[in-house]
């Protein structure tokens, strides 16, 4: 807030239901979510991700220029972007579960998660659990799943921040995988030395994004398998897989 000394306006043209409209919003402050707040509660609750000038854009990422805006949700005619965003967000949440769930003496080092692919049937997180011989029982998997499923009641937002490479290296100094990944991630960014970092509650992770607006979209969340993999870059890791269903697409559990 202190970084913005003078508030400027941007023109946002909204396309879609309930009607097309044009709004004047604050540059670097207003987000697609604040546009949704002006228009109606339905857009606030059901929108997963926004489309700004044709690019997927986080619901809580401020506008930087005049733009055209659309809100996407799971029942669109072409829900590919919301599906991918949901899958990526679920991987992100899986990382936070792994960091939270284990006892303090087990230092879990998160490695990475691959590009979201819904057709594979599961979202993935690779991590070094420091438990080489651990075969999880169904009760243990259930405990992990419940941490994720409970998030739907908390309505925690996913917030994006682009930090400098030096700050990122400091933030993730206790994670040997992330330290190795940060330079290549920074090289891909448009400025060449910024790293996209997302926050959900007190969990922070690096991902290209975008992620969904909040954890209230989750209806069902379950961690299904933990298996061993050999990564060519990082050696022996655990691959944790899970499955989730959004609230907008109810399924019967009978």
């Amino acid at each position: 807030m202190a970084l913005i000394t003078r508030i400027e306006k941007v023109q946002v043209v909204h396309h879609g239901p309930p009607e097309d409209c044009t709004l004047l919003m604050n540059k670097d402050l207003s987000t697609p979510f604040s546009v949704a707040m002006h228009i109606g509660e339905l857009l606030m609750t059901r929108s997963v991700v926004a489309l700004v000038n044709g690019e997927p854009w986080d619901m809580h990422k401020p506008f930087t220029e005049d733009c055209e805006l659309q809100f996407l949700h799971f029942k669109d005619d072409q829900p590919d972007i919301p599906n991918q965003v949901f899958w990526r967000s679920c991987s992100f949440i899986l990382g936070s579960i792994l960091e939270r769930a284990f006892k303090e003496e087990i230092h879990v080092e998160l490695c990475s998660f691959p590009r979201p692919n819904v057709r594979s049937g599961s979202f993935v997180y690779d991590a070094d659990l420091k438990l080489p011989d651990w075969k999880p029982t169904s009760a243990e998997l259930n405990c992990l799943s419940r941490i994720g499923a409970k998030l739907q009641h908390d309505d925690i937002r996913f917030e994006r921040l682009d930090v400098d490479i030096s700050v990122a290296l400091k933030m993730f100094q206790d994670n040997r995988f992330k330290i190795l990944q940060i330079p290549s991630i920074a090289a891909q960014s448009p400025s060449g030395n910024s790293v996209p970092v997302y926050r959900m509650g007190d969990h922070v992770d690096i991902t290209r994004g975008p992620l969904m607006s909040s954890t209230q979209h989750i209806a069902r969340y379950s961690v299904t398998t933990v298996s061993d993999i050999d990564s060519p870059d990082f050696g022996r890791l655990k691959r944790i897989q899970g499955l989730a269903i959004p609230k907008q697409l109810p399924v019967s559990d009978a």
Binding site: P79, N83, L249
Partner: peptide, 19 residues
């Protein structure tokens, strides 16, 4: 009528059916 073929649940079910 909405085209629901590409909804997340239907993609998962399709894939499960295929497997």
């Amino acid at each position: 009528e909405r085209d629901q073929r590409n909804s997340l649940v239907n993609i998962l079910l399709d894939q499960a059916r295929k497997d």
